[in-house]
Design a protein around this nucleic acid. Sequence first.
DNA 1: CGACCTTACGCGTTACGTAACTATA
DNA 2: TATAGTTACGTAACGCGTAAGGTCG
Lengths: 128, 128
Amino acid sequence: MKLQQLRYLVEVARQGLNVSEAAEALHTSQPGVSKQVRLLEDELGITVFERSGKRLTGITEPGKAVLEISERILREADNLKRVGEEYAGEDTGSLNIATTHTQARYVLPAVVSRFLGRWPKSPHVAPG
Amino acid sequence: MKLQQLRYLVEVARQGLNVSEAAEALHTSQPGVSKQVRLLEDELGITVFERSGKRLTGITEPGKAVLEISERILREADNLKRVGEEYAGEDTGSLNIATTHTQARYVLPAVVSRFLGRWPKSPHVAPG
DNA sequence: CGACCTTACGCGTTACGTAACTATA
DNA sequence: TATAGTTACGTAACGCGTAAGGTCG
C-alpha cells in the first residue's frame, strides 16, 4: 500500500469516477492511475469501484469506508509536511568565532568541517 | 514521503532510539533504516532525532510532533487493511447454471470467460 | 464510431542488502 | 577495542509513460 495509490483513489472519486480526469488533475498518465487503483484493490481484497464493463459506475460499500480512511491519511500526511514548515527556521542563528591567526589557520578548518558535516543545513561560513 | 519511512521512524523511537534493533524488528537491514530515516528528515526539513556523533540521543521537539502524526497515519493504514478483512467473504456465493448440451458446448465458454474476467476472484468453475 | 478503461512493454528511478568506513564509549 | 551509525555500491523491483487492445453507449 502506497500513499500515492490513496491519492489516485481519492482523486478518481472526486472527479466523478473519471479516471482520465483524475490522471490529468494529478499530472500523470491515465494508465498509471488505472493500474495503481487496481493494485490497491487487489492488495486490500476489496472492490472499491463498481464497474460496468470498462466504465466506473459507482462506489461499493466497503469502497466508501476505504475512501474515508484514505482521506484521513492524506490529511495527516499534509499535516506532516506542515510540521516541517512550522518549525523551519527555528533552529537557525549565527555563530561568531574569535581566535588568533594561528588557530584560525591550523585548527579551525578541521573543526568547521566537522561542524558542517554534523549540521548539513548550515549555509554560511565566512570570515569577518 | 513513503509509509515505510514512517514505519521505520516510529520503530526506531519505539526501540529506544536504537536503529539496529528497529531494523531487526522490521526484518530488514540496518543501513536501510538509517538511510530512509535520513531521507524523511531531509524531505520534511526537520531533524527528528538528536544525534551525538553517531548515536541517537533524543527526540527533538518537532520530532515529537512528527512521530505522533506518523503513528496516527500508520493506525489508519492498519484500519484500511482491516476493512478488507471485514468485508471479505461478503461478496461470495455460488452460481449454478443449467442448460442444454449445445448451449454448454458453444455459448457457455465465452460467457464464462467474460464473467471470470470481470470477477477475477471467482475461484471455481466446475461442471456438476 | 467515439469515449474511456485496461493490458503490454521498455525505460529510468528507487529501495534494499553487503561490504567497508568512522566515531563514540 | 567493541559497538553502533553512516557511506558506497551493485542489483533487483517498482512506478511511469507510450502504444496497442477491448468494450460500452
